[in-house]
Design a protein around this nucleic acid. Structure first.
Lengths: 194, 194
DNA sequence: GTCTATATAACGATAGAC
DNA sequence: GTCTATCGTTATATAGAC
């Protein structure tokens, strides 16, 4: 068995990320200090820099991991082949994934403006990669004459834009359940491209 | 005629507020420095303190003025007497007023967390005052047997909460015009209380 | 790997000359 | 009313002891 100090250390970085996520979502990136993060983790400031080179990297890693996990989660599934079923599947997946991570969704939306241009471009690339999944589904459907859609690229942007607004409507204790929301959006999206 | 310096000075405070509003909406309150505000106004930092005692007051005045202007704008209108017409009028008024001020709506939602407890309570009181307008309309309608509603206070909170979500849906260049949105919400709200 | 101590810069806010 | 200069504080980030 490894030394206990080493075992704990493996948990330290995820813990820093988790607490930074909470604080950034609660007070905003610029309003949170490294000292506050360290204090809530149970460390002194200097120790944070064993895990992250700077504050900016804590934020950018949160956002990059969020996007990368999203894309990985998509490809980890067994996907249906028919493009119309695949599109329904995508809507369902997207809504469910984002409803399960309200804090990540919030900072991915709010704190983009606090990324350096370099990190912002990284996020943009990942976002494009995710949008390619959807536009790929659409153009495959068009090729098989199941969908009718002139501009699959623009259509996929519009659809993702629409789906993004779910989190502003959805309340866990509200009258509308997540399964209802998903079926509503599935119908809207399918109608939009057939 | 007054001295030109005096004339310009009268415009300085509104200009500071206007530019602070822009910057706060764009980058967030905590990420904007007094020096940045001063620079964009065309002043040195020290000069800002002739108009505001501190940075916090710039933010709180923006939010307080936003709420006070909203309430004043309501009472400045000629109001219909019938409670059902008055309710329609309220929905129309609320949506139009907020669609015209996207930056104010945004910081009124996002920057509440950066208010001191004292200023936060001020905003809460103004919000209650605004909600009293609506609950007053509802209870007057109940008294005249036009509306049916058990808890007018809770109903008014729910309605305002619903109306607040308009700004997340509405896009000026979108397919849905503001007049359509208003009539949709008027119907929903009226149905909800009759 | 974590600590204490510190370098360096930027922040909000103030004082006094003009 | 605006400027320059500066105070005191706090921030990020680093260096070196343990």
């Amino acid at each position: 068995m490894a030394r206990t100090s080493g075992s704990y250390a493996k948990l330290t970085k995820p813990k820093i990320s988790e607490i930074a996520l909470q604080l950034f979502a609660e007070r905003g990136y610029a309003a949170v200090s490294m000292r506050q993060i360290a204090s809530k983790v149970g460390l002194q400031v200097g120790a944070l820099y064993n895990y992250f080179p700077d504050k900016q990297t804590i934020l950018s890693e949160l956002l990059i991991n969020h996007m990368e996990s999203l894309i990985e989660a998509w490809y980890a599934q067994k996907l249906p082949e028919r493009p119309d079923k695949l599109l329904e599947f995508f809507v369902d997946f997207h809504i469910q994934y984002h409803l399960n991570r309200p804090e990540e969704v919030f900072i991915a939306y709010m704190e983009l403006r606090n990324l350096t241009p370099y990190n912002f471009r990284k996020i943009e690339k990942l976002r494009n990669k995710y949008e390619l999944i959807l536009s790929g589904i659409l153009s495959e459907g068009v090729r098989k004459n199941i969908f009718s859609c002139d501009e699959t690229k623009i259509a996929s942007l519009a659809i993702i834009g629409m789906l993004k607004e779910v989190h502003t409507w959805y309340k866990i204790d509200g009258r509308i359940g997540s399964s209802e929301i998903k079926s509503i959006y599935q119908k809207i999206v399918l109608k939009a491209v057939t």
